[in-house]
Design a binder for these strands. Sequence first.
DNA 1: CATCCAACCTACCTACTAATAGGTTATTTA
DNA 2: TAAATAACCTATTAGTAGGTAGGTTGGATG
Lengths: 187, 187
Amino acid sequence: MKNTRTKILDAAQELIQRVGINAMSYKHISDTVGIRKASIHHHFPKKENLVDELLERCQISYGVYYSDIVNGSDSAPEKLRKLATVFANGLSNQKLCLVGSISTDSNTLQDHSCKILEQSIHNTVTIFSTVFVQGKEEHALVFNETAEDAAFAFFSFLVGTQIVARSCGGVEAFHKAAEVIIGALEK
Amino acid sequence: MKNTRTKILDAAQELIQRVGINAMSYKHISDTVGIRKASIHHHFPKKENLVDELLERCQISYGVYYSDIVNGSDSAPEKLRKLATVFANGLSNQKLCLVGSISTDSNTLQDHSCKILEQSIHNTVTIFSTVFVQGKEEHALVFNETAEDAAFAFFSFLVGTQIVARSCGGVEAFHKAAEVIIGALEK
DNA sequence: CATCCAACCTACCTACTAATAGGTTATTTA
DNA sequence: TAAATAACCTATTAGTAGGTAGGTTGGATG
């Protein structure tokens, strides 16, 4: 059985991914988890504490998830397709990537949260860049700039396409867009 | 001299681009414009009316802006670079594309606003797609899928990179990422 | 058994939200 | 000049936000 703390984090994450960080409230979490609002403050005194821990948690969980794909035995383009599928799956549940969702509201975050967010993005890009190093070595991916720059571009593309496709086109539009970009990179 | 209605729209747009639609309030607009909160309700009875009009207005203004670039005499890749520069300029003022900013919070919008948002995205993609048609004809851009799909992918990429780069890397990271994607498309 | 502590509660606070009611002012129009 | 109208105001509403004070419960430890 999950403890209350984890239940709060899970509910908060889902809410942020669906409606954004500013539309998510302790009231919503309280309704979802079945606990009083004040009890959430017992676990996370301020909203920023909750956000910080959420970002750190997803950094670990998604890091492992991405690493599994990145360190597999597929070709580089195939790995990019698998990474895109992770985002497509989120989209099919109307859920955005947590980092992407929070980034949009980054101007309303505390300094400390911004730092963690920046670190989360940086770590994700670092994991992604392995695929581009592999792709360059195997001549399966062709791109200007460094592998890190390419990984940053690809991650940003996935974040943006998730956001735009949720409003217009859905999962189908997402997959076509991914095929355009991955196709362009592997020529 | 701008009339009050326009001043309200301008202030609201700037606020949404900076902090998102849910962190923007009539109070903020009132402080910015120097008018009472109730007076904003006189012009825009509900917040959704303001958002709707804002989306329609930006559809026209940005439509013209994009069209100027798209219908110019540059090569297709050069036009993509100019479109990217529009987003880079917004980013340098910490401002996101209005459509991108509102899309992130699309799950908290009224149905009618969602429809207009969808239409705005569709129109933008239609304008962008002209460049990809040109690029294919001139063999300056190479991509799978249709020109519309490629335009959708490119627009989504710009939206996402603006969001991610604002949290991590800034304008410099944006330009490098744009070079990766445009470079990949023109090979 | 006593006390300690985490977890959770009720009850409340201040600040802010969108929105409304109703009055004043100034400009335009018949 | 009189009526109508748009623009703006003050004052207030009901609801929600994040956050706090202080009490209850129940299990672990001395």
